[in-house]
Protein backbone atom coordinates (compact mmCIF):
# COMPACT_ATOMS: atom_id res chain seq x y z
CA UNK A 1 0.00 0.00 0.00
CA UNK A 2 1.51 3.31 -1.00
CA UNK A 3 1.34 6.15 1.52
CA UNK A 4 -1.37 8.79 1.30
CA UNK A 5 -0.78 11.62 -1.07
CA UNK A 6 -1.82 15.21 -0.60
CA UNK A 7 -3.68 17.32 -3.10
CA UNK A 8 -2.35 20.55 -4.43
CA UNK A 9 -4.87 22.45 -2.35
CA UNK A 10 -4.12 20.85 1.03
CA UNK A 11 -2.56 22.93 3.75
CA UNK A 12 0.54 20.88 4.38
CA UNK A 13 3.03 23.38 5.80
CA UNK A 14 3.15 25.17 9.13
CA UNK A 15 3.55 28.93 9.08
CA UNK A 16 6.14 28.60 11.85
CA UNK A 17 8.19 26.24 9.68
CA UNK A 18 9.90 28.89 7.61
CA UNK A 19 7.17 31.26 6.57
CA UNK A 20 7.47 33.64 9.53
CA UNK A 21 11.26 33.55 9.36
CA UNK A 22 11.22 34.34 5.66
CA UNK A 23 8.84 37.24 6.18
CA UNK A 24 10.99 38.65 8.99
CA UNK A 25 14.13 38.39 6.85
CA UNK A 26 12.45 40.06 3.89
CA UNK A 27 10.95 42.83 6.00
CA UNK A 28 14.30 43.68 7.53
CA UNK A 29 15.53 44.09 3.96
CA UNK A 30 12.89 46.68 3.22
CA UNK A 31 10.10 44.57 1.67
CA UNK A 32 6.55 45.45 2.64
CA UNK A 33 4.44 42.82 4.35
CA UNK A 34 1.23 43.40 2.42
CA UNK A 35 3.08 43.10 -0.87
CA UNK A 36 4.78 39.90 0.28
CA UNK A 37 1.46 38.37 1.23
CA UNK A 38 -0.44 39.51 -1.84
CA UNK A 39 -1.77 36.65 -3.91
CA UNK A 40 -1.37 34.15 -1.07
CA UNK A 41 -4.15 32.97 1.24
CA UNK A 42 -2.16 34.00 4.31
CA UNK A 43 -3.54 36.64 6.64
CA UNK A 44 -1.37 38.86 8.75
CA UNK A 45 -3.17 37.95 11.96
CA UNK A 46 -2.58 34.22 11.39
CA UNK A 47 1.18 34.57 11.23
CA UNK A 48 1.80 34.04 14.91
CA UNK A 49 -0.65 31.25 15.53
CA UNK A 50 1.43 28.24 16.58
CA UNK A 51 -0.40 25.81 14.34
CA UNK A 52 -1.33 28.11 11.46
CA UNK A 53 -0.94 26.32 8.17
CA UNK A 54 -0.51 27.21 4.52
CA UNK A 55 -0.72 25.62 1.08
CA UNK A 56 2.43 24.73 -0.72
CA UNK A 57 1.28 26.90 -3.60
CA UNK A 58 1.06 29.84 -1.18
CA UNK A 59 4.63 29.19 -0.16
CA UNK A 60 5.70 29.29 -3.80
CA UNK A 61 3.81 32.56 -4.32
CA UNK A 62 5.49 33.96 -1.24
CA UNK A 63 8.92 33.07 -2.60
CA UNK A 64 8.04 34.68 -5.92
CA UNK A 65 6.92 37.87 -4.17
CA UNK A 66 10.16 37.96 -2.17
CA UNK A 67 12.26 37.67 -5.27
CA UNK A 68 10.28 40.33 -7.05
CA UNK A 69 10.71 42.79 -4.23
CA UNK A 70 14.27 42.11 -3.18
CA UNK A 71 17.50 41.48 -4.94
CA UNK A 72 19.07 39.52 -2.14
CA UNK A 73 20.79 36.31 -3.21
CA UNK A 74 21.65 35.46 0.39
CA UNK A 75 18.00 34.95 1.34
CA UNK A 76 17.88 31.17 0.79
CA UNK A 77 21.08 30.61 2.76
CA UNK A 78 20.05 32.81 5.66
CA UNK A 79 16.67 31.14 5.78
CA UNK A 80 18.35 27.73 5.85
CA UNK A 81 20.37 28.80 8.87
CA UNK A 82 17.36 30.36 10.54
CA UNK A 83 15.38 27.13 10.12
CA UNK A 84 18.23 25.01 11.40
CA UNK A 85 18.45 27.00 14.62
CA UNK A 86 14.78 27.79 15.03
CA UNK A 87 13.30 27.14 18.46
CA UNK A 88 9.91 26.35 16.98
CA UNK A 89 10.88 23.45 14.74
CA UNK A 90 11.42 20.30 16.78
CA UNK A 91 12.60 18.44 13.69
CA UNK A 92 15.55 20.81 13.27
CA UNK A 93 16.32 20.71 16.97
CA UNK A 94 16.34 16.94 16.92
CA UNK A 95 18.91 16.99 14.11
CA UNK A 96 21.48 18.60 16.43
CA UNK A 97 21.06 15.86 19.02
CA UNK A 98 21.50 12.96 16.59
CA UNK A 99 24.43 10.62 17.09
CA UNK A 100 25.91 11.22 13.68
CA UNK A 101 25.13 12.48 10.22
CA UNK A 102 23.60 9.21 9.16
CA UNK A 103 21.02 9.35 11.93
CA UNK A 104 20.37 13.06 11.41
CA UNK A 105 19.75 12.72 7.70
CA UNK A 106 17.50 9.72 8.06
CA UNK A 107 15.54 11.64 10.68
CA UNK A 108 15.22 14.59 8.30
CA UNK A 109 14.15 12.27 5.53
CA UNK A 110 11.60 10.43 7.64
CA UNK A 111 9.93 13.65 8.77
CA UNK A 112 10.50 15.55 5.55
CA UNK A 113 6.79 16.08 4.99
CA UNK A 114 6.93 18.58 7.86
CA UNK A 115 9.60 20.75 6.31
CA UNK A 116 10.57 19.77 2.76
CA UNK A 117 7.71 17.91 1.10
CA UNK A 118 9.07 19.15 -2.21
CA UNK A 119 12.07 16.81 -2.48
CA UNK A 120 12.72 13.12 -2.39
CA UNK A 121 16.10 11.50 -2.74
CA UNK A 122 17.93 8.52 -4.13
CA UNK A 123 21.18 7.47 -2.53
CA UNK A 124 23.92 5.73 -4.35
CA UNK A 125 27.41 4.92 -3.46
CA UNK A 126 30.39 6.18 -5.39
CA UNK A 127 34.02 5.38 -4.79
CA UNK A 128 34.75 7.49 -1.73
CA UNK A 129 31.44 9.06 -1.01
CA UNK A 130 27.72 8.60 -0.88
CA UNK A 131 25.84 10.72 -3.36
CA UNK A 132 22.41 12.04 -2.40
CA UNK A 133 20.41 12.85 -5.47
CA UNK A 134 17.54 15.26 -4.88
CA UNK A 135 14.47 15.14 -7.06
CA UNK A 136 11.53 17.50 -7.00
CA UNK A 137 8.53 15.66 -5.58
CA UNK A 138 5.99 18.16 -6.80
CA UNK A 139 5.57 21.04 -9.19
CA UNK A 140 7.95 23.73 -7.93
CA UNK A 141 7.24 26.33 -10.63
CA UNK A 142 10.60 28.10 -10.94
CA UNK A 143 11.46 28.05 -7.26
CA UNK A 144 13.44 24.83 -7.56
CA UNK A 145 16.77 26.64 -7.25
CA UNK A 146 15.70 28.54 -4.16
CA UNK A 147 14.34 25.45 -2.40
CA UNK A 148 17.42 23.43 -3.22
CA UNK A 149 19.74 26.17 -1.93
CA UNK A 150 17.63 26.32 1.21
CA UNK A 151 17.89 22.58 1.80
CA UNK A 152 21.63 22.49 1.07
CA UNK A 153 22.29 25.41 3.36
CA UNK A 154 20.41 23.62 6.13
CA UNK A 155 22.28 20.33 5.70
CA UNK A 156 25.68 21.94 5.26
CA UNK A 157 25.03 24.27 8.18
CA UNK A 158 24.28 21.25 10.34
CA UNK A 159 27.47 19.51 9.25
CA UNK A 160 29.51 22.66 9.84
CA UNK A 161 28.11 23.11 13.33
CA UNK A 162 28.36 19.51 14.40
CA UNK A 163 31.44 18.23 12.61
CA UNK A 164 33.39 21.46 12.27
CA UNK A 165 34.08 21.48 8.56
CA UNK A 166 32.55 20.77 5.19
CA UNK A 167 35.75 20.28 3.23
CA UNK A 168 35.51 17.29 0.93
CA UNK A 169 31.81 17.67 0.29
CA UNK A 170 30.87 18.58 -3.24
CA UNK A 171 27.69 19.76 -4.83
CA UNK A 172 26.47 19.09 -8.35
CA UNK A 173 23.83 21.32 -9.82
CA UNK A 174 21.66 20.94 -12.86
CA UNK A 175 21.40 24.59 -13.76
CA UNK A 176 23.97 26.85 -15.35
CA UNK A 177 26.70 28.60 -13.45
CA UNK A 178 26.08 31.36 -10.97
CA UNK A 179 28.71 32.86 -8.75
CA UNK A 180 26.84 32.87 -5.47
CA UNK A 181 26.53 29.21 -4.47
CA UNK A 182 30.20 28.66 -3.85
CA UNK A 183 30.55 31.75 -1.71
CA UNK A 184 27.56 31.05 0.46
CA UNK A 185 27.87 27.31 0.93
CA UNK A 186 31.63 27.02 1.16
CA UNK A 187 31.82 23.76 -0.79
CA UNK A 188 32.99 22.87 -4.29
CA UNK A 189 30.16 23.32 -6.77
CA UNK A 190 29.97 21.99 -10.33
CA UNK A 191 27.30 23.14 -12.75
CA UNK A 192 25.35 21.73 -15.69
CA UNK A 193 25.34 18.23 -14.20
CA UNK A 194 22.78 15.54 -14.88
CA UNK A 195 21.08 15.88 -11.49
CA UNK A 196 21.09 17.95 -8.31
CA UNK A 197 23.32 15.96 -6.10
CA UNK A 198 25.23 16.31 -2.82
CA UNK A 199 28.28 14.08 -2.45
CA UNK A 200 29.34 13.48 1.16
CA UNK A 201 32.54 11.49 1.80
CA UNK A 202 32.18 8.24 3.71
CA UNK A 203 34.21 9.52 6.66
CA UNK A 204 31.50 12.09 7.50
CA UNK A 205 28.69 9.63 7.98
CA UNK A 206 29.72 7.89 11.18
CA UNK A 207 31.66 10.70 12.87
CA UNK A 208 29.87 11.48 16.17
CA UNK A 209 28.13 14.85 16.46
CA UNK A 210 29.39 17.39 18.99
CA UNK A 211 25.96 17.80 20.58
CA UNK A 212 24.94 14.15 20.32
CA UNK A 213 22.46 13.36 23.08
CA UNK A 214 20.26 10.28 22.89
CA UNK A 215 17.76 11.43 25.55
CA UNK A 216 17.17 14.82 23.95
CA UNK A 217 17.01 13.20 20.55
CA UNK A 218 14.23 10.85 21.52
CA UNK A 219 12.36 13.67 23.30
CA UNK A 220 12.49 15.82 20.18
CA UNK A 221 11.54 12.87 18.01
CA UNK A 222 8.50 12.40 20.21
CA UNK A 223 7.38 15.95 19.62
CA UNK A 224 7.92 15.44 15.89
CA UNK A 225 5.59 12.46 16.11
CA UNK A 226 3.03 14.54 17.94
CA UNK A 227 3.23 17.09 15.16
CA UNK A 228 2.45 14.27 12.76
CA UNK A 229 -1.14 14.45 14.01
CA UNK A 230 -1.43 17.92 12.51
CA UNK A 231 0.78 17.39 9.50
CA UNK A 232 0.18 13.79 8.61
CA UNK A 233 2.79 11.80 6.88
CA UNK A 234 1.92 12.01 3.22
CA UNK A 235 3.73 12.45 -0.04
CA UNK A 236 3.16 14.46 -3.16
CA UNK A 237 1.42 12.78 -6.05
CA UNK A 238 4.21 13.09 -8.65
CA UNK A 239 6.66 11.51 -6.20
CA UNK A 240 4.40 8.52 -5.53
CA UNK A 241 3.82 8.06 -9.21
CA UNK A 242 7.55 8.08 -9.99
CA UNK A 243 8.22 5.57 -7.24
CA UNK A 244 5.53 3.23 -8.49
CA UNK A 245 6.86 3.38 -12.01
CA UNK A 246 10.44 2.93 -10.90
CA UNK A 247 9.53 -0.21 -9.00
CA UNK A 248 7.51 -1.56 -11.91
CA UNK A 249 10.29 -1.22 -14.52
CA UNK A 250 10.77 -2.81 -17.06
CA UNK A 251 7.03 -3.00 -17.20
CA UNK A 252 5.45 0.33 -18.10
CA UNK A 253 2.42 1.44 -16.16
CA UNK A 254 -0.49 3.03 -17.91
CA UNK A 255 -2.32 6.03 -16.56
CA UNK A 256 -5.37 3.90 -15.75
CA UNK A 257 -3.29 1.36 -13.84
CA UNK A 258 -1.68 4.05 -11.71
CA UNK A 259 -5.01 5.71 -11.06
CA UNK A 260 -6.44 2.37 -9.91
CA UNK A 261 -3.43 1.79 -7.63
CA UNK A 262 -3.94 5.21 -6.03
CA UNK A 263 -7.68 4.84 -5.80
CA UNK A 264 -8.34 7.78 -8.10
CA UNK A 265 -10.22 8.08 -11.31
CA UNK A 266 -8.10 8.51 -14.39
CA UNK A 267 -9.40 12.00 -15.06
CA UNK A 268 -8.81 13.19 -11.53
CA UNK A 269 -5.25 11.86 -11.68
CA UNK A 270 -4.77 13.86 -14.83
CA UNK A 271 -6.25 16.98 -13.26
CA UNK A 272 -4.13 16.68 -10.13
CA UNK A 273 -0.97 16.23 -12.16
CA UNK A 274 -1.77 19.28 -14.21
CA UNK A 275 -2.03 21.28 -10.97
CA UNK A 276 1.60 20.33 -10.43
CA UNK A 277 2.24 21.59 -13.96
CA UNK A 278 3.32 18.19 -15.21
CA UNK A 279 1.72 15.24 -16.93
CA UNK A 280 1.93 11.48 -16.87
CA UNK A 281 4.15 10.95 -19.91
CA UNK A 282 6.68 13.54 -18.73
CA UNK A 283 7.04 11.86 -15.33
CA UNK A 284 7.41 8.46 -16.95
CA UNK A 285 10.08 9.80 -19.25
CA UNK A 286 11.92 11.32 -16.28
CA UNK A 287 11.93 8.00 -14.44
CA UNK A 288 13.38 6.17 -17.42
CA UNK A 289 15.99 8.87 -17.95
CA UNK A 290 17.22 8.66 -14.37
CA UNK A 291 17.18 4.88 -14.40
CA UNK A 292 19.21 4.83 -17.63
CA UNK A 293 21.78 7.25 -16.24
CA UNK A 294 22.20 5.30 -13.04
CA UNK A 295 22.51 1.96 -14.81
CA UNK A 296 25.14 3.42 -17.09
CA UNK A 297 27.07 4.86 -14.17
CA UNK A 298 26.96 1.61 -12.25
CA UNK A 299 28.06 -0.97 -14.73
CA UNK A 300 28.69 -2.21 -18.22
CA UNK A 301 25.40 -2.85 -19.89
CA UNK A 302 24.85 -3.28 -23.57
CA UNK A 303 22.24 -1.16 -25.25
CA UNK A 304 20.07 -4.24 -25.68
CA UNK A 305 20.17 -5.00 -21.95
CA UNK A 306 19.42 -1.38 -21.08
CA UNK A 307 16.54 -1.24 -23.52
CA UNK A 308 14.96 -4.34 -22.04
CA UNK A 309 15.48 -3.15 -18.45
CA UNK A 310 13.86 0.18 -19.20
CA UNK A 311 10.94 -1.29 -21.06
CA UNK A 312 11.82 -0.26 -24.59
CA UNK A 313 10.68 -2.54 -27.36
CA UNK A 314 14.07 -2.46 -29.08
CA UNK A 315 17.43 -0.77 -28.75
CA UNK A 316 16.79 1.75 -31.52
CA UNK A 317 14.01 3.32 -29.56
CA UNK A 318 16.22 3.41 -26.48
CA UNK A 319 19.09 5.01 -28.35
CA UNK A 320 16.78 7.63 -29.76
CA UNK A 321 15.33 8.44 -26.33
CA UNK A 322 18.80 8.60 -24.82
CA UNK A 323 19.96 11.00 -27.49
CA UNK A 324 16.99 13.18 -26.69
CA UNK A 325 17.76 13.22 -22.95
CA UNK A 326 21.48 13.81 -23.02
CA UNK A 327 22.38 14.88 -26.53
CA UNK A 328 24.87 12.01 -26.88
CA UNK A 329 24.44 8.36 -27.74
CA UNK A 330 24.74 5.82 -24.90
CA UNK A 331 28.16 4.52 -25.89
CA UNK A 332 29.83 7.93 -25.68
CA UNK A 333 28.03 8.61 -22.39
CA UNK A 334 29.45 5.36 -21.04
CA UNK A 335 32.90 6.60 -22.01
CA UNK A 336 32.51 9.48 -19.53
CA UNK A 337 32.21 7.09 -16.61
CA UNK A 338 34.14 4.02 -17.67
CA UNK A 339 37.24 5.26 -19.44
CA UNK A 340 38.65 1.72 -19.70
Amino acid sequence: MSPRHFGYQDKILLLQHGCTDLLALAQRRGAELHKLLSGTGIFEQDLHKPLGRLHFSDWLTLLKNCQQQLNSPELAYLLGNALLNSRYISLCQSLHYAQNLSQALSQLYYFRHQLFPCFYVRLYRQQHCIAIEFKPALGLANQHGFMFSLLCSLILGLIKQQLGSVSGISLQLQHAESAQQQQFLGVAVSFNQAADCLCIPLSFWRQPFVDANAVQFSAKTRSCRQLNRVLCKQRALPEILCRLQRRALPQLLSQDQVAAMLGLSSSSLKRQLSQHRTHFAALLDGVRRDAARQLLQQGHYSNRQLASRLGYSDEHNFRRAFKRWTGVIPSSFKGLFNPH
Binding site: A24, L25, R28, N81, N85, G157, Q161
Partner: peptide
Protein backbone atom coordinates in the same frame (compact mmCIF):
# COMPACT_ATOMS: atom_id res chain seq x y z
CA UNK B 1 29.42 35.33 12.10
CA UNK B 2 27.52 32.05 11.75
CA UNK B 3 28.09 31.40 15.44
CA UNK B 4 26.89 34.90 16.34
CA UNK B 5 23.76 34.33 14.27
CA UNK B 6 23.20 31.02 16.01
CA UNK B 7 23.57 32.43 19.51
CA UNK B 8 21.67 35.68 19.05
CA UNK B 9 19.38 34.94 16.12
CA UNK B 10 19.45 36.14 12.55
CA UNK B 11 17.70 39.39 13.50
CA UNK B 12 20.60 40.45 15.73
CA UNK B 13 23.00 39.49 12.94
CA UNK B 14 21.12 41.69 10.48
Amino acid sequence: FAGFNRRHGIAAGD
